[in-house]
Structures are given as structure tokens and as C-alpha cells.
Design a protein around this nucleic acid. Structure first.
Lengths: 229, 229
DNA sequence: GCAAAACCGCGAACGACGTTTGCAGTTTAC
DNA sequence: GTAAACTGCAAACGTCGTTCGCGGTTTTGC
């Protein structure tokens, strides 16, 4: 009988999170697949068919291995999602240098973040979920703090601003992904006068400036400006 | 043999969505539970243990019925979630009157929305999902448009502003629900200098004014103000 | 060198999930 | 009064995340 230990670093207190668990044990045969391969396969699956397509069986299947074998590399599907998130957040590198106008730099990073979320539409869903931040996520956060160094504000205010900007970027990505999904067909507009009036207007094209830019700029100045209190 | 029709209004083109499906058929015995009872039970379950606790078996169980029987009232779990959302959005009534300063009124409604999301922490998750808007959701949207009537802006701009405010309220609710969840323990801060510096600061309490208020105000003026373009 | 310990991948299984189906019983319409 | 429509139930299907025990492989310690 082989006994209790089934996973590397599965002891009482060591390696509780993915980020501290060794990629492979030091004793047995070489794994046929690396952790990176697994995460890459999962990301490809999610990019193609959404988060729901990332099942243990599907991920293992594209790699030609059995579903249970995945648990040699990670201890749960949540771990896999955490790894996927951090891998994609790594695409944000390199971060903008922290010189010049801080708001411009910050917006540049936010725009890159938006592009990232559009490239991986499942990312907002994977992030809005109790997550253990990985090295790339921490580095991104650190870079944001670096960009905000010239700003005179409390640290908590900066934290809040970063979180809010990240959240708003998610909203933009989501609304772009869901464009055309919401339909008001087959709705009796009689009971909703303002809605009916809105639809009666000529369907003017959206020629306003850059909504993303304007939104984030007003958000940043609102949150990180020495407010009169 | 009873034949094809299994659900009320299950024909070819009628009653495709919950909102057009009749609550019960006209022919058979009286249902032992109403649709409202089912939705209320599901909401109670979600309030207590989150969206994951809302399984067909659990909902049916608390009502003393079999899981499959639920499909006499709705045609999928997604339908149930849509009903739950709309039921809770109904708690936003009555809407503020559309006189006085429109920004104040709008913020009042947003604050009520935040309270709603805190009362039902699963709501943001249930909303961020392809959803068919129910009557209460439509009424809420209509009320928002009513409050924005004195604003001189394109309809699309108003739509965007409403969506953005709703999204930001979700963010606030989520961040409040996840407060203390994110932990930076067991992280080697050496690699993240700005993060380390931030934690080195005295942990000043958050005595800033009203973050919610400031955020939404700057957002609204940024989105609904005649911008110079 | 050699045994013990640790690790790898596999296939089968477990419990929970959403949903479907056939059936017996009940109510309404014609 | 008969046929159609509806209700609820128990059982089942397929999928999911996850666990378990098994042979086979590699390293450790002597």
C-alpha cells in the first residue's frame, strides 16, 4: 500500500496554495506534461468556448491524459482557474515606465487591460471570484502603485482607485461582449413610457468621443484628487 | 399515452421566455405551489448560502416536492435565476419622484440599489449573465430614464450611463462582500517594492468622505455632461 | 546494489448536478 | 362522459469535480 501522500507538498501546513506548491515532486518519474502546458490548454479551451468548456475532462482530453491525472499537478479546478488568470495577466507585461503624466500612463495600462479582457472574454468571470493573487497579478498591482507614486493620496485611496479602475475595465469588456445580447423585442412598451420615448428617438450612431477614456479620467480625478473635506 | 405537450405553452413559438409563459395551465389540477413560492424559496436559499446553494433539488426540497416537478413551472434553472433577479429588483420600488436635482435623485436610487445588492449578495453574479429582463427590471430602467429626462444628452449616452452606474454599484457591492477575503499573507514582498512600501505605511483608518457618492458623481458628470468635442 | 519511500498516470468509481421521461391521478372542455 | 390537458413523482441519463487503488518508475539512504 502506497499510503497517505498523494500530492507533492500535501502535508499539514505546506503548499496550501498553488503558488507555493512545487510544480513536480523530486522523487518519481518525470511528468508527461508540465503545469504550463496544462494551463495553456485550459486557456485555449476557454478562449474558444468560454469558461464552461474548461472541464477537467476536456482539459485532460486535449492533452491526451486522463481526468484524474490533472490532480497530480493541481488540487482543484479553482487552482486551474487561478493559474489561468495569472498566466493571462502576465500578458500585460512589460508595464509602462513611471515617468510623464501619471494619468496618461495609467490609462495606457487600463487600455491594455481592456484589450486583454477582450482577448480572453472569460477573464472577468474568472476574476470575479475568490482568488489567490499570483505573481503576475501582484506584479501588475505593484506596477499600478508605481504609476500612482506621484499622486498625493492615502494608500487606501490608491488601492480603491486601482480596484475600481480594474472593475470598470471589466464592465467595459463585459458590455462589449454582451453587445446585442440584450433585446427588447416582444416587450410591451406601453407600460414603460420613458423607454418607449427613448426608442422613438432617431437611432443616432454613437459618435461621441472615447467613452472609455472619459469614464476612467473622471473616475481617476474623482478618486485621487485632494477632495475638500 | 399522454403525448407531446409537457409544459404549458410549450408549442412552437409561444411562451419561449418565462415572462410570456402562463403561470399554470387551464386544464389540470391546481398546482400545489405557486411560481412565487418557488422563487421565494430560491431567493431565501441564495441569501443564506449563495447562488451555488440554489440547486433544483434544494429548491424543490425546501418546498417538499420532487426536483423534476419544478419543470412544470419553469423550463430551466436559468429561468429560475431570471425570476429571482426580477423579484429582487422589485424591491427597488417605489422609485424616487423625478423632481428636484436629477443627480441627487439618481444617487438616491443608486444607493438603494447598493443596499439591495448587499441584502442579496448573489445578485451581481446572477445579473452578470445573459439575462432576459423582467417587468421589474424594465420598470427600473424606465425609472432611470425618467430621472435623466432633464439631462440634455443622447439616448445612447443615457443608456451607457445607466449601465455603467449599475455596474459600478455591483463593484461596490462585490468589494464590500469580498472585504478581508484577499490576503497578502505568505507573499514575498521583496519582488514588489511599491507594494512593500504601501504596507510599510501606517495603516490609517479610512476616514475619507463617501467614496460611493464621490465615485458616482464624478462618473455621472463625466458621462452626461456636454463634453467639449 | 538494494530496499523503502515518494511520485506518476490510469481507469473506475462516488456523489451531486440539470434535465428528461413514463406513469398514475386529477381537472377541465366539448 | 369521454378525451384532452395538466399535475406530481420516481427513476433514469449524461456530465461534472473529485477520490481511490493499482501497477510502474525514479530517487533516496544505507
Amino acid at each position: 500500500m502506497s499510503g497517505a501522500p498523494r500530492n507533492p507538498a500535501d502535508g499539514d501546513s505546506a503548499g496550501r496554495s498553488i503558488w507555493t506548491r512545487p510544480q513536480r515532486g523530486a522523487r518519481g518519474p518525470a511528468p508527461t506534461h508540465t503545469r504550463d502546458e496544462i494551463v495553456a490548454a485550459a486557456v485555449a479551451l476557454a478562449d474558444a468556448d468560454g469558461l464552461g468548456a474548461v472541464s477537467m475532462r476536456a482539459v485532460a482530453g486535449t492533452l491526451g491524459m486522463a481526468a484524474g491525472s490533472l490532480y497530480r499537478h493541481l488540487s482543484s479546478r479553482d487552482d486551474l482557474l487561478d493559474l489561468m488568470v495569472d498566466r493571462c495577466v502576465g500578458e500585460l507585461r512589460p508595464y509602462p515606465a513611471d515617468d510623464g503624466d501619471w494619468q496618461d500612463r495609467f490609462l495606457l495600462l487600463a487600455r491594455r487591460q481592456l484589450a486583454l479582457y477582450r482577448r480572453h472574454p472569460w477573464l472577468p468571470d474568472a476574476i470575479s471570484r475568490p482568488t489567490v493573487p499570483g505573481p503576475n497579478t501582484l506584479a501588475h498591482f505593484d506596477a499600478c502603485l508605481g504609476l500612482l507614486r506621484p499622486v498625493k493620496a492615502r494608500v487606501t485611496a490608491k488601492f480603491e482607485a486601482i480596484a475600481m479602475v480594474t472593475g470598470v475595465v471589466s464592465l467595459f469588456a463585459r458590455s462589449a461582449a454582451a453587445a446585442g445580447t440584450v433585446t427588447f423585442d416582444h416587450v410591451d412598451l406601453a407600460a414603460y413610457p420613458h423607454l418607449a420615448a427613448a426608442f422613438a428617438e432617431p437611432p443616432s450612431a454613437p459618435p461621441d468621443g472615447d467613452l472609455f477614456d472619459r469614464t476612467l479620467r473622471s473616475l481617476l480625478t474623482g478618486l485621487l484628487t485632494p477632495n475638500p473635506t
